[in-house]
Design a protein around this nucleic acid. Structure first.
Lengths: 139, 139
DNA sequence: GGATAAAGGTTGTCACGGCAACAATTTAAA
DNA sequence: TTTAAATTGTTGCCGTGACAACCTTTATCC
């Protein structure tokens, strides 16, 4: 069931981002940068629990499409800091709207109390999954 | 958060199926056949909400690996009916165990009441997602 | 019976994330 | 100070599901 939800999100986001020349893979990175800029790719990768390689590719696409700039970190030449461009900032409201649209599409069948509950439980499970998996990988 | 859970499941199932020469993409099909055989690919696709092409590929792999047989439907030459082979039946207990392992990994952080709640809410959301998306596609 | 539409499965193409390997840089340890 | 380990980002490869197009068969309609 979980993967149905996940896949459906992918389809919707893909469709909504197409007019911007983007696709679903770039959404998590973009929406994170809308909320907070000046972060490294590695931070993004860890925050989103997405593989470094995938983040790098996503960022490369966003840079290529003109929505994101990379600035080399002044204190660490390996690292880059990510910022939205003007073009990126211009679509931020639409990205947030798409995010809410998805939320509404997914949870319109739930009462407000159940929405809150679902959100909390989902977060618990997600973090538990990551923690357990990381523990297993350390073994 | 939902995609984190989904991706984690993928990683775990991938690892658990590797000794059988299989991967996560085949798991939904296999586990469905453990529960119920003699179904068509199209039925599988609709039941799992996975694209026909993806199901066809998954089935092809399972057939190639010796876990599943295809029998042409006696009343409809387009359709095939899917059955587990002896080899497939032999690993059925392990598949069910893996399924439970995943469930435990994901939900070990929840109380039994919350597990039940999460399961119900997830199912509601998933079906709502599919229904809404299909309605959108009909427009 | 013939024409058209729908159904069941196959194959091509694409973008995606995971895993792995790598290079360059930075940090930690000896 | 030197060496080893860790960090940051890049690229290769793989399997996956979505979308599309296609072929054959079946169903529907006139």
């Amino acid at each position: 069931m979980i993967s149905i939800i996940s896949r459906t999100q992918f389809v919707l986001i893909n469709e909504r981002l197409r007019p911007f020349g983007l696709s679903a893979g770039q959404f998590p990175v973009l929406i994170t940068l809308v909320v907070r800029q000046n972060i490294m790719q590695d931070t993004l990768s860890r925050h989103l629990h997405i593989d470094k390689g995938a983040v790098a590719r996503s960022v490369a696409k966003l840079v290529g499409a003109g929505y994101v700039r990379r600035i080399t970190d002044p204190g660490n030449r390996r690292a880059v800091r990510l910022f939205l461009t003007k073009k990126g900032e211009a679509i931020a409201p639409e990205l947030l709207r798409i995010d809410r649209e998805w939320e509404e599409l997914a949870c319109s069948c739930l009462s407000p109390a159940d929405r809150e509950k679902f959100s909390l439980l989902t977060e618990s499970v997600a973090l538990n999954c990551r923690n357990t998996l990381e523990k297993m990988e350390a073994d």
